[in-house]
Every structure is written in structure tokens, then in C-alpha cells.
Design a protein around this nucleic acid. Structure first.
Lengths: 140, 140
DNA sequence: ATAAAGTGTACTTTTGTAGTACGGATTTGA
DNA sequence: TCAAATCCGTACTACAAAAGTACACTTTAT
């Protein structure tokens, strides 16, 4: 299975929680208890989201985190890139400094690129708002 | 990074090698030496590809593997599914028997589904032939 | 019957993720 | 100005999944 890291999964849960309290400044501890996720993990995720400008932070007493964009403007490609790095299926992509070790024998040099681009575009089309509005568990 | 397993990467290299010798019956050992990949690994991959009807095998002396479809008819979604299982980004998808442990607090229950479908479709549109024809290393 | 080839299972090693811990920096308010 | 609450950064440990390896079994042509 092409896996998304758990961290990214958690990140979306946290962002969804923040979206329902738009404008409020929320502490890491508060978000952890609301989402029932371990606090250190939540902190780590919030830090990464902050570094990637998806949320903003305020330090000191009464500090906390808040969304900088509307949920409809936050796309999944940004969130995944923030947590897992660039969206790429294989090591052998355009960004890598050189061809892989098997370059001479490899008949598909760097050609995951079209696939990677297609996936990137697919993820850019899904917003946080869309994921929240899509209600209910499909198994119920 | 959203990772594809190395096995899948190898699988495409092996299939590309087979495509250039269309019709020939090739042994696991032969494919291993042509691709410079470890032989046991190549065997494991060929076995999985056979089970998923992407290639066919012939046993006994002078046996080997061959493609059952033209390279243009082999899509990446099939190859990835053969090696890594169903294409799905998160554990919390339609196929899973129940909602995740955080179901009660989770505001995005099972909503990676639209993303998964978009990715599946993107991968179905890329054929083995396309990946082979796309020549040269982008860094050269 | 034997050798060459695919098949299946189980084990070991390696790698990367997830989780944890702790000390530091920043801001507010008394 | 001090203390408390909060964010920030780094390093370490534990666990799980992937990758690689080994080996015994089955099939088939000669």
C-alpha cells in the first residue's frame, strides 16, 4: 500500500479540529485533548505546520496556534508536503542530483515524473474544507 | 515523502527489460543479470507479477517468464497494486472494516477516499510503454 | 533420472517511523 | 522583575515494516 505517514493523517485531524474553532488561538495541549492524540506528537506536527506557513503560532502565556487561511484554501498537497516532504513516488526523480546506481541499465530513467506530477495535481484539488464536509463513516 | 516501495520500482525496471525482448521467454537469472538486480529479489517480484496476471510463467527446464499484454496495455496502477496492494493513502478508507480508534472525535472519517480515487485514476493513465519511451535522464 | 527452472515458506537484517524526553526561548501579567 | 504558561529544537529509544536471504519443494525437457 502506498502509505501516507500517520503524522500526516494526524495533521489533517488537527487541522479539522482547528477549522471548527476558526479564529481562536488553541494551545498544543488543548488540541491534543480534543483530538485524543498524544501531546508530544501534536506539538511536533504543529511545529511542522507552522514552519510551512499553514498555521501561525504565538508564543508566551496565552499563546497558541491558529489557521492563517480559510479551510477551503488549504489543499492536501501543502499539508502532505509539510509533513512528508516533496510528493514523489520514487527516489529516481528530477530533483535528485544524479541518476540511480543502475542508470546505465535502467530503461526508465527518471520517468516516474509524469506520475508524480499527476498525483501532485490530484492532491492540490482537494481542500481541507472538502474533507470536513464529506460527512459520516462509509461503513455505517 | 510518499513512498513507493523499492520492489515496485524494480518491477518496472524488470518489465521494461522484458518489453524490449517481447515474446521471448526469460529466466529469473537472466533478467537479474540484465537489470543488475539481486536474483532472489527478482524472483520474488516475478512471482508477484505472475500471480497478478501481468506476466505468465512456464516451469521446468527452458522455462521462464513473458509478458501477456503489450507494454502499452500495462498500466502503473496494476503494477503497483500487484506489489504493494490496493492504492490507498490512509488506513481509514472505505475498504477497512470499521472506523479508526478515534472515530468519535474524528471529523474526517474515511475521507481520504476522493484523494485515493484521484490517484488511482492518475496511475491508470500511465502505461509501461509511456515510461519506456520517455527517454534520457533529466539531469544530463 | 537428472538438471534447469519456477514456487512457497520462513528467517534475518536493515531502515524509517513513531514516540519520548528534556532543556531552552519567548511572552504575559502580577 | 520574576514566575508561569506556552512554543521551540534536538537527541534518544523502541518498534514495525520493508528488503534481502536461504532453503526445500515442484515441474518439465532431454
Amino acid at each position: 500500500m502506498i502509505k501516507l505517514s500517520k503524522m500526516t493523517d494526524y495533521a489533517v485531524v488537527i487541522l479539522a479540529e482547528m477549522a471548527t474553532r476558526d479564529g481562536q488561538l488553541l494551545s498544543a495541549a488543548g488540541l491534543a485533548s480534543h483530538t485524543r492524540l498524544p501531546e508530544p506528537t501534536v506539538s511536533k506536527i504543529l511545529k511542522l505546520l507552522t514552519k510551512n506557513m499553514i498555521i501561525s503560532s504565538k508564543r508566551g502565556i496565552n499563546g497558541g496556534y491558529s489557521l492563517v487561511k480559510a479551510p477551503a484554501e488549504i489543499d492536501m498537497a501543502s499539508v502532505i508536503t509539510a509533513l512528508d516532504g516533496p510528493i514523489a513516488l520514487a527516489a529516481c526523480v528530477e530533483a535528485s542530483p544524479e541518476c540511480c546506481d543502475y542508470a546505465d541499465n535502467c530503461k526508465i530513467k527518471g520517468h516516474w515524473n509524469p506520475v508524480n506530477i499527476a498525483m501532485q495535481q490530484a492532491l492540490e484539488r482537494v481542500s481541507l474544507a472538502q474533507m470536513i464536509n464529506n460527512k459520516g463513516c462509509p461503513n455505517e
